[in-house]
Design a protein around this nucleic acid. Sequence first.
DNA 1: AATAAAAAGTGGTCAGACCACTTTTGTTAG
DNA 2: CTAACAAAAGTGGTCTGACCACTTTTTATT
Lengths: 214, 214
Amino acid sequence: MTENQSKSKVFIETVNDLKGIIQEEGIKPGDKLPSERVLAERLGVGRSSVREALRSMELLGLIQTRQGGGTYLSDYRNHQLVEVLAQFILPDEAGSGYVFSTQRILERDAICMVALDENLCKSPVWESLLHNVIEGQTVMREDIIREMIVATNNRLVYKIWLLLNQYALRPYQGTTTENEKVHLERFLSNLRMGQPALALEAYEEWIDTLAKER
Amino acid sequence: MTENQSKSKVFIETVNDLKGIIQEEGIKPGDKLPSERVLAERLGVGRSSVREALRSMELLGLIQTRQGGGTYLSDYRNHQLVEVLAQFILPDEAGSGYVFSTQRILERDAICMVALDENLCKSPVWESLLHNVIEGQTVMREDIIREMIVATNNRLVYKIWLLLNQYALRPYQGTTTENEKVHLERFLSNLRMGQPALALEAYEEWIDTLAKER
DNA sequence: AATAAAAAGTGGTCAGACCACTTTTGTTAG
DNA sequence: CTAACAAAAGTGGTCTGACCACTTTTTATT
C-alpha cells in the first residue's frame, strides 16, 4: 500500500515511515527517536533522505533536535512553523484570512454545542471565567475559546483548532480592555443561560470589535 | 539580524535566505527558482543543506518540484501542511466518530453561508442539482456538499473537508434511494429559498437517515 | 568512590558520484 | 527554410563517505 504510488519521493515516504515507527514504538512527545544512521539502515534509505525528512518535520515543529544529543519527538503545540509560514503568508492576506474564518467556524459550532447542552452550559467553568472577568483579572480570549472547544469533547476539532491558532496572526493578545469586558460578560452569561443565538451574537461582536481595535 | 543567533542551523538560515532571494528577485508563484546547485554556490553552503531547506519548504507546500524540470514557487494558499499534519493527527482519531462530526461542522457552516447569501443561494447549481434528483439521475451526497463548500470560497476549509472525507468511513455511497430523494429535494429547495434553518433541518434528517440505513 | 580522561554515539555539513528525467541545443531529412 | 529527431546540457533524487562539533557513555586514574 505504500508503493502503489511509486512516484512519491523517498523523503516523503520517510516522513510517513517515521510516523509509523513512532506509532509502533509507542514513542511519546519528549521521547527519543532512533538516530539518523539507525533510521537510514532500518528504512533502507540513505542518511541524507532521512535527514531531509527529519528536517522537514523539524521545520513543522514535530520534532526537536539537539546536536550530539539526539532527536526527540516534540509536543505538536510547539510549532515554530508559525514564524516561518507567517513570513511567507503575511504579505498575502488572503491566505491568513482563510485561517481566521476557518477558526471561527469551529468556534461558532463549539458555542452552539455548549449553549445547547444543559449540562455543558451549567458548568462552573463559565461562572468562574465570568467571575474573573468581572474581577478584572486578565482573561485570554484563547483560554475561553479553548475551554469551550474542549467542552465539546471532540479531540479532532481541538487539534485542528490548535493548529489554526498557531497559523493565525492572532490579533488578540495583551490586556483585556474595558470594552472587551462588556462583550465577554454578555457572551459568557448568554452561554450560561443556554442561549446559543444570543451567545453567538455577542461572540461575533466581540471578535469584530477586537479585530477592529488593531 | 540573521546572525545574532549564531546557533541557528544552516538549513534554517537557508530557508530565510531563500525567502530573501524570492523577495529580491521578485519571484512570483509559478516562477522558477534557481537550481539547487546554483543556490548552494550562491549562498556558500553545501547542496545538501539547500536541499534540506527546499524539502522542508516543499513539505509545507511552499514550493513545487519537478524532477529534471526545476523548482517552482507555488501558491502559498495550497496548504499542503494540512495533509502532512493530518498524517500525524488524524490516524488516532479515525474511526472514532470525531472525523464524522467534524465534517458535519464544516458542512453545516457551508449550508448556512450559502443560504444566507443572496447571490450564492440563487446560483443555478442548486437548481440543476435539484433537477437531476427529480429526474432520477444519481446525485452523490458528496458532490452536493462539495458544491456548497466550494461556493463558500474558503480553500482551507475545502482542503480540510476533502481530507476528512478520505478518512471518514463514508456510509453514503451507491444509488440514491427514494427516501433520500425526498430529503434531498427538501434540502435543496430550502437552500435555494435562502432558508438556513430549514435547510439545516433537512440536512440533519437526511444525514441521520443515511446513517441509519446501514 | 569520585573524578578526569578517553571513547563512542549523534547531529551538522560538505563533496562527489550516479541515476532518471526534462529542457535545450544541434543536426539532419524533407 | 522548416520539421523532426538525436545528442548534450541542465536539474532534481538519492546514496556514500568523510569530517566537524557536541553530548553521552565508558574507562582509567587517583
